[in-house]
């Protein structure tokens, strides 16, 4: 027969163990929740820092107002390049006009050379006639013949000069054609490269804005959920309060039991034997987590 002391000790031990377990559970939950809360705060802080970094990057790329930032500068550079290109083209077209006017002027020179040549031919014809007349006049015409020869020589010189001028004009014509070709090449630039460059700059700007707003939206979502999670973790406080009151009630039961056992002194009523045995068996087979700290634990505990 079991004694009342045995049962009393067993019940006291069981209740004591339960109260200890509750304390340990309370401690573990508190420690875990504190850890989680700290982690979430760090997480939130890091996200904010990332967001700030991203803001810095986009400020450099985009600027805070239009006209600032790397992308706006790129756009301005493309604009200036195009403006310069158009001005170079306009000046080149103007040069082509000038070159063509020079060509027209040179044609005037050719026209005048033609006239000089026909004048020289006429002069030569006159000199020839004068020579014939001088010949006919005999000795008295000798001086006149010398003059006629001089005039012919001058006309021949004039023909020589005009041939030289014609040669120069031909050469100048060829050079003007080359100049015209060179300047027209200078005037003609394809604009599609600049168009592409501007398109790329603008699409980079759009993509950056889109990414910015997506990241901001996602960050504020995450932030909202972290705040909710941290709020939800306050359950630990309530659980702790419940555990405290449970412990107090169990303590009261234990005190009452011990008082009853002290008063009864002696044999237990029949039937309580079985309860004692069952309690003993339960105590030997029940194992509980012995850990008292989250830090001391390892994964297998959970």
């Amino acid at each position: 027969m079991k004694t009342a002391e045995t049962l009393s000790a067993l019940v006291g031990q069981t209740l004591g163990g339960v109260i200890d377990d509750l304390s340990r559970a309370q401690h573990l939950v508190r420690e875990g929740v504190q850890g989680l809360t700290t982690s979430f705060h760090v997480f939130r802080h890091q996200l904010q820092a990332q967001n700030d970094e991203l803001g810095q990057v986009s400020k450099v790329l985009q600027g805070q107002e239009s006209g600032q930032g790397f992308i706006s500068h790129m756009n301005a550079i493309v604009g200036r390049f195009v403006e310069d290109l158009v001005h170079v083209s306009a000046s080149s077209v103007k040069l082509v006009q000038q070159v063509e006017r020079m060509g027209t002027d040179i044609e005037q020179v050719v026209h005048n050379v033609d006239r000089i040549e026909s004048l020289a031919n006429e002069t030569r014809f006159i000199a020839l006639n004068a020579r014939i007349e001088a010949h006919r006049a005999g000795d008295s015409g000798r001086t006149f013949r010398v003059v006629a020869d001089e005039v012919k020589a001058l006309a021949d010189d004039a023909t020589g000069f005009s041939a030289h001028i014609r040669e120069l004009v031909t050469r100048t014509h060829a050079r003007l054609d080359e100049a015209r070709a060179a300047v027209s090449a200078l005037a003609s630039h394809d604009m599609n490269g600049a168009l592409d460059a501007q398109r790329q700059v603008l699409s980079a700007l759009e993509a950056l804005s889109a990414t910015n707003s997506r990241v901001s939206a996602s960050l504020s979502q995450v932030d909202h959920h972290i705040a909710q999670t941290v709020r939800a973790l306050q359950f630990e406080d309530m659980v702790s309060q419940i555990l405290d009151s449970t412990k107090r009630r169990l303590e009261a039961v234990r005190t009452l039991w011990l008082e009853w056992a002290a008063r009864s002194q002696g044999q237990l009523p029949a039937g309580l034997d079985e309860v004692t045995n069952a309690l003993e068996a339960a105590l030997t087979t029940t194992t509980v987590v012995k850990q008292t700290s989250m830090n001391a634990g390892s994964v297998e505990l959970f």
Partner: peptide, 12 residues
């Protein structure tokens, strides 16, 4: 299609 010489002609 237009190129820079067309723009130049328009400017003139």
């Amino acid at each position: 299609y237009i190129d820079s010489s067309a723009l130049g002609m328009l400017l003139l």
